[in-house]
Design a binder for these strands. Structure first.
Length: 807
RNA sequence: GGGCCUGUAGCUCAGUUGGUUAGAGCGCGCGCCUGAUAAGCGCGAGGUCACAAGUUCAACUCUUGUCAGGCCCA
């Protein structure tokens, strides 16, 4: 029995009996303090070693080993009971630990079916739970039961069968972890973890507290532990191979299952009996931990291969494997080779159901993966997972919506880029020989450069095992490809003749698509393979997944060109924003766009890309200016990062002064001057790097500013521009009508228009443009019964058209 | 009870060694564009960075505590 060392116990006289119990428990047994008399108070420590007569007569022989003397244990409390705990080392870990080095034998008088054994003759063969009533009755009859009560406490149940479990001591084989713990910690220090905190956190802490590993199981199925023991002594041998087993026993086994190897015996070399295998099989985690060796049958085969491939470059498993695979791999590798079993490990988090709960078979709170794959595709599912926090060891809430986003945001646009290429390549019967070309068009050189950048960015992220960031670059690239390269190049593919520029466009798009599918192959293996099968040349590998991963060629990269295109795209984006703010639709041509920047380099770049800007923004002219003062106002803010370190406490006062700087003063700083600044508690020599300039668009100007770039629109719509815009509206409507009337894009038409006199003048002024764009052979000014009426603002127009060969 | 992780827009998530207008995608509203697109583009609304205290000239960021969620262990 165990006592708490510092708990105060009382000897109380109750009639003719004397009881010992914790003082704090008295009130649980006596309603009235007058019912008892305290004889003595003693601490648990003082009572340690007191002999007692056990409730039952069993195991009397262990009296000599002090089995029936009190012990002290820290876990004893006065929360319930008497404050004295019956202790059975065969049925509880705490109990076992208390008695560990006392010399008291561990007894466990129940069999594998949890029935009492011979050692408890009165209840022999009775299932322990069924004996409760009889035991209570007996205690009562013998006058040993003082009080009986039921109380609620947690109890272990089998998670499969939901049956209550009995905790009992069994004899086991252990790996002595304390002997190799340091090696394991050292091995772990050589591993790179994703996410990194697991290394010293969850896994590191687990290793520090690692306890001995029970590797034996009392089962039938499993790998037999290869230990043979003499049945007449403690002599034993561990067998390392079939060959060794044959040497000992003369039997060569093919099948290593329990029922075969258990038959194998040989006379014990110590002459005291027969060598028989111990009955246990291995914990299956032992085999998981042995994977690096077992998978190649090392050391019996593939010795060289193993030595060149161990430790593994990387492994990947779930966060729950801290005490599973990660751990057992580490134990075996550290013990056998003094190394880690893997150099890198990506730990994924748990995939939770849409409701945020763990996916569960019994709750059925998840979509069938087969349905998901059938509906959205395996690539979409795979990319959704790879692009989520789950690859960084965090939880992920699964949702069909998330997968749809991947489909809409990446897979379909990606496929459309490919499909655009295929459509026109088929029309023009284009076939690439797969040899890289050096195109002249800056747009081609730009996207080729971006493709090389893609390779190096993705490679860099993959080397760091940052899958979602790697994917980010791929998504960005496909967006550039679709919404800038292809959009800006479309007209090059429409031309009817196969000129050099068109061929270069094809070669470029082909090459870029090839690069993209190679880079994206690990993320979206199916769609990329599908594209590959159609694009590959004879000499290329049979499958995309048999190709080497691309290596970036820095010679193709033109960082300056990439930067130029970025500035151009920014200017265009700002121009579009301006149009949107002032309700000037793109179809309406405008006189000019003003671009203002103090940066001479930026100005040069934008001039170079003038054509693109003119076309994208539908303006007649781009005018460059450097004096942005006309369009924007400056305000200065302190550059806290630069000034903060030196100014310290004075930062606030100085910042206030800086915000008061005039436009003139700011300009002088921009021109390289140094300003002397006095503030409350000190002074400062201010230079350009000490401030951050903010630009504000002046009121009533159609101007937009972003960083150093300011863009303005000349929004005056002249009569001529209005006419041109109107004609473009008509063109658009005719194109829609062509579609509505199911005309082929190549069909020629007869056109009939009608409307006001002003409209007629407008149409006449831009007649040629109108005819070319709509593939019209002729134009008649009349209204027919089939004419469709359209209007833009106060302009009305009647349109009719017919296919030329129908008339 | 202990260890580790997470908490930022309606949703899913970025946010470098602390530096002053906290970003993206989706969704929503409005508009534009369209002879590749079950498309695309622009603008807009939407935030007490879970909460509190502390350190600091300065905190989404560092420290401590509280709350909520998750995983592992007991």
């Amino acid at each position: 029995m165990a006592l708490g060392p510092d708990i105060v116990y009382t000897r109380v006289k109750d009639g003719n009996e004397v009881y010992i119990l914790a003082k704090e428990r008295l009130s649980a047994y006596y309603k009235d303090p007058g019912d008892y008399e305290i004889i003595e108070e003693l601490t648990g420590k003082e009572l340690e070693g007191t002999s007692y007569v056990p409730l039952f007569p069993y195991f009397k022989e262990f009296d000599k080993q002090n089995a029936f003397k009190t012990l002290v244990a820290d876990y004893v409390t006065v929360q319930d009971g008497t404050g004295i705990v019956h202790t059975a080392p065969g049925f509880g870990e705490d109990d076992y630990n208390v008695m560990k080095n006392t010399g008291i034998p561990v007894v466990c008088p129940i069999d594998a079916e949890c029935r009492f054994t011979d050692e408890v003759p009165d209840y022999k063969g009775v299932f322990v739970k069924d004996a409760d009533k009889a035991i209570i009755k007996r205690l009562k009859d013998e006058g040993k039961l003082v009080k009986r009560e039921n109380y609620l406490h947690s109890y272990p149940f089998c998670y499969r069968t939901k049956e209550p479990l009995i905790y009992r001591a069994i004899s086991c084989w252990f790996v002595d972890i304390s002997k190799i713990k340091e090696k394991m910690i050292a091995a772990n220090n050589q591993v790179d973890w994703v996410p990194s905190h697991i290394k010293t956190g969850r896994f590191g802490k687990w290793l520090e507290g690692a306890r001995d590993w029970a590797i034996s199981r009392n089962r039938y199925w499993g790998n037999p532990i290869p230990i043979w023991k003499c049945d007449g002594s403690d002599y034993m041998e561990v067998i390392g191979s079939r060959e060794e087993l044959k040497e000992k026993s003369g039997v060569m086994v093919d099948d290593l299952h329990k029922h075969f190897v258990d038959e194998i015996t040989w006379p014990s070399p110590d002459g005291k009996g027969t060598m028989r295998r111990i009955p246990d099989v291995l914990d299956c985690w032992f085999e998981s931990g042995a994977m690096p060796y077992a998978q190649v049958h090392y050391p019996f085969e593939n010795k060289e291969w193993f030595e060149n491939h161990f430790p593994a470059d990387f492994i990947s498993e779930g966060l729950d494997q801290t005490r599973g695979w990660f751990y057992t791999l580490t134990i075996l590798a550290a013990a056998l080779f003094d190394k880690p079993a893997f150099k890198n490990v990506i730990v994924n988090g748990l995939v939770l159901a849409e409701d945020g709960k763990k996916m569960s078979k019994s709750e059925r709170n998840f979509s069938d993966p087969k349905d998901i794959i059938d509906t959205f595709g395996a690539d979409a599912l795979r990319m959704f997972l790879m692009n989520s926090a789950v690859v960084k060891g965090e939880d992920l809430k699964y949702s069909d919506e998330g997968i749809k986003d991947v489909l809409k945001g990446f897979i379909i646009p990606f496929w459309n880029a490919y499909s655009f290429f295929v459509t026109y390549a088929n029309i023009d019967d284009f076939k690439s020989d797969g040899v890289p070309k050096e195109p002249d068009n800056p747009l081609d050189r730009w996207i080729l450069s971006e493709a090389e950048s893609l390779i190096s960015e993705v490679t860099e992220q993959l080397d760091r095992y940052d899958l979602s960031r790697a994917l980010g670059y791929i998504v960005r690239f496909v967006d550039l490809l679709n919404n800038w390269y292809i959009r800006r190049s479309r007209r090059r593919f429409w031309r009817s003749e196969n000129d050099v520029d068109k061929l270069q466009a094809y070669e470029t798009l082909y090459s870029v698509l090839m690069t993209t599918i190679h880079v994206a192959a690990p993320f979206v293996p199916f769609i990329t393979e599908e594209i590959y099968q159609n694009l590959k040349t004879e000499s290329m590998p049979e499958s995309l997944h048999l190709s080497d991963y691309p290596v970036a060629n820095s010679e193709i990269r033109d960082l300056e060109l990439e930067k130029k295109m970025e500035i151009t795209r920014q200017a265009v984006s700002m121009g579009r924003a301006l149009r949107s703010i002032h309700s000037l639709k793109i179809r309406q041509p405008l006189k000019s766009l003003y671009i203002v920047t103090r940066d001479t380099k930026e100005r040069a770049v934008l001039r170079e890309m003038e054509d693109i800007i003119i076309e994208e923004l539908n303006v007649k002219d781009v005018i460059f200016k450097e004096n942005e003062e006309d369009l924007v106002e400056y305000k200065a803010k302190a550059n806290f990062k630069v000034l903060g370190k030196t100014l310290g406490k004075n930062m606030k006062a100085a910042a206030e002064k800086i915000e008061e700087l005039s436009m003139m003063e700011i300009q002088s700083l921009l021109d390289g001057a140094t300003l002397h600044l006095d503030y409350d508690s000190g002074e400062l020599e201010l230079k350009e790097e000490g401030i951050v300039i903010q630009r504000f668009e002046k009121e009533n100007l159609k101007v937009l500013n972003e960083g150093s770039l300011t863009v303005g629109l000349d929004s005056e719509i002249t009569e001529e521009l209005l006419q041109e815009g109107t004609v473009r509206d008509i063109v658009r409507s005719i194109q829609n009508l062509r579609k509505e009337r199911n005309l082929e894009v190549t069909d020629r038409i007869n056109l009939k228009l009608s409307g006001s006199d002003w409209l007629k003048v407008a149409v006449d002024s831009f007649k040629e443009h109108l005819l070319t764009e709509t593939l019209a052979d002729n134009l008649v000014w009349e209204k027919t019964e089939k004419s469709v009426e359209l209007n833009w603002g106060d302009v009305n127009c009647f349109i009719d058209l017919s296919r030329v060969n129908q008339v």
